[in-house]
Design a protein around this nucleic acid. Sequence first.
DNA 1: CTGAATCCTTCACGATACTG
DNA 2: CAGTATCGTGAAGGATTCAG
Lengths: 135, 135
Amino acid sequence: MSTNLSTMPDFIYDNRLYYNPMEFALHFIGGTWKMPILWRLNKKMMRYSELKKTLPHITHKMLSSQLRELEGYGLIERKAYPVVPPKVEYTITDKGRDVIPVIETISQYGYTIMKEKGISIEGHKAEKVQVNKNN
Amino acid sequence: MSTNLSTMPDFIYDNRLYYNPMEFALHFIGGTWKMPILWRLNKKMMRYSELKKTLPHITHKMLSSQLRELEGYGLIERKAYPVVPPKVEYTITDKGRDVIPVIETISQYGYTIMKEKGISIEGHKAEKVQVNKNN
DNA sequence: CTGAATCCTTCACGATACTG
DNA sequence: CAGTATCGTGAAGGATTCAG
């Protein structure tokens, strides 16, 4: 990449000022929930309730709003079946798949510093691990 | 990596609950300023005022507090010279260099979606570019 | 030149209740 | 089952002032 971040001009998109591409990227995929959602949809199409189940801590409101935003950005697709009770399926799009490398890189770094700080995730037993700060 | 994000247990570090490695990583390098600062210090050691100059929009308070946090995480080092007026130099550490791949990946994705949305950065002339939403 | 402290605004996110 | 609306809270970040 030849563009130099140090001399990067600001730019305005949709009435909001950005200082650099990183900030711009994180506007679309940042926050607590967007990447975890994309990660799951990258594995398979999922229904609303299914997503809710695999994101134990997300609230109803957040899941709903985050899905709506991701759909607006063209990162996921929503297919609603006109049945009762309602059935809605979410899938990742090609544009959505572009963020998978970002997720993988950040996750990997996350694992790195977790190891540094002595946080271990033993297999898949979903225990809550308590770790103290000292590093 | 064999660990499955879908079944990842929560963990607590320094009295704060995290749901996954991504969230953990972004606790240390997230926010508006930490990655831009690390990116600059990766190129060369810089003084406080120098950093301030190349980060046109950061406020005095933010630069100060972000430097202190990064130092606390061991991502940068602070060398103060007992002269008057004060002279302080900041350098990136080996731990700090670990986040460079993250910065590069996110930046690259940022450039990708900027292009998608028709935002062009022509060379290094620091003009403010105005772009409307329609994509 | 470098840095700390105070006050204030904005916004992400959670809790809860209501709907077809 | 899927979704919206309202209200409240905390944290991030900006403006400003004081200081060695």
